[in-house]
């Protein structure tokens, strides 16, 4: 049995790092919980409940800043929830070793994506297809840094939607928000500005995590006594993390997070291979 204070501390740190890096708490939380002896399936189930809290908390602020695109979010949600249901169902019947390996794969993949991340300027899509136009995926927001109104329109929704099923699948499977993957789809496929894609992915994550949670709840993997300190810890950590984020430079945060990801990824890989 993991002690209350250990749980709370791990969750605080995971929430803090998750918010600072923008990757969400689950990526750090699950490996840390398994390290102190929690079964990986229970760790995944508890993490996905805490994901609802952090994503809803931050989405509530972003939505009122009028940057989130509700229509993009509500269209893509249809795909992510189905993915999350399927993913969680797979985890429940899966054996444990593939879960460690998949988690390692996601961690190292995120590491690679962050490492290779280019600092390209956002450009609007040249042409928006008829289906996306019909979906009314346009929007605008005021950019504080550039001091101007940014007008954009999302495109290639016919491709972005099905891809989001995959993002939802990974979220449900591993108990994480999979925000990085969602942002990638928003950016690269649908041509949304970075701010819109991160905030909109945040909105989608809450509902996606709920779909996954329902499966874990029905299977009896959610332990309220353990979930309570984790939800509170991750929530508090994320809150502190967003406050600190303003003061730290981007570069320092990125370097720190790259190191954390690499260590956790390798650790999960070793545990997956050893069994």
């Amino acid at each position: 049995m993991v002690s209350f204070w250990v749980l709370l501390l791990i969750s605080l740190v995971a929430g803090f790092i998750g918010a600072m890096s923008g990757m969400g708490g689950g990526v750090v939380l699950i490996p840390a919980l398994t390290l102190v002896g929690m079964d990986i399936k229970h760790a995944i189930a508890i993490s996905i409940v805490s994901v609802i809290a952090t994503s809803s908390g931050s989405a509530s602020a972003y939505v009122r800043d009028h940057i989130t695109n509700l229509k993009v979010g509500m269209f893509l949600e249809m795909f992510t929830i189905l993915g999350a249901l399927a993913g969680a169902a797979i985890t429940i019947i899966s054996s444990r070793r593939p879960l460690f390996l998949m988690f390692a794969f996601v961690l190292l993949g995120t590491w690679l994506a962050l490492f290779l991340q280019s600092k390209e300027e956002w450009k609007p899509l040249a042409k928006v297809d008829r289906f996306s136009r019909w979906l009314e995926l346009r929007g605008s927001y005021y950019d504080q840094a550039q001091q101007q109104q940014i007008v954009y329109e999302g495109g290639r929704a016919y491709f972005g939607g099905p891809l989001m099923f995959g993002a939802g699948l990974i979220a449900g499977l591993l108990g994480i928000g999979a925000g990085a993957l969602k942002v990638l789809i928003h950016d690269l496929v649908m041509g949304l500005p970075p701010k819109v894609s991160t905030t909109t992915s945040n909105l989608i994550i809450g509902v996606t995590a709920l779909a996954g949670t329902s499966v874990y709840l029905a299977a009896g993997y959610i332990d309220p006594g353990l979930a309570a300190p984790v939800i509170l810890g991750v929530g508090a950590g994320a809150f502190i993390g967003t406050k600190v984020l303003v003061r730290l430079t981007n570069m320092a945060v990125r370097r720190f997070f790259l190191v954390v990801l690499l260590i956790l990824g390798v650790e999960m890989l070793i545990r997956g291979i050893r069994g």
Partner: peptide
């Protein structure tokens, strides 16, 4: 207006739960 509504629903839920 919808954005405000969604924002308040989420915030209220998280706060009450906490």
């Amino acid at each position: 207006r919808m954005e405000m509504m969604v924002g308040y629903v989420l915030q209220a839920g998280v706060l009450i739960s906490g």
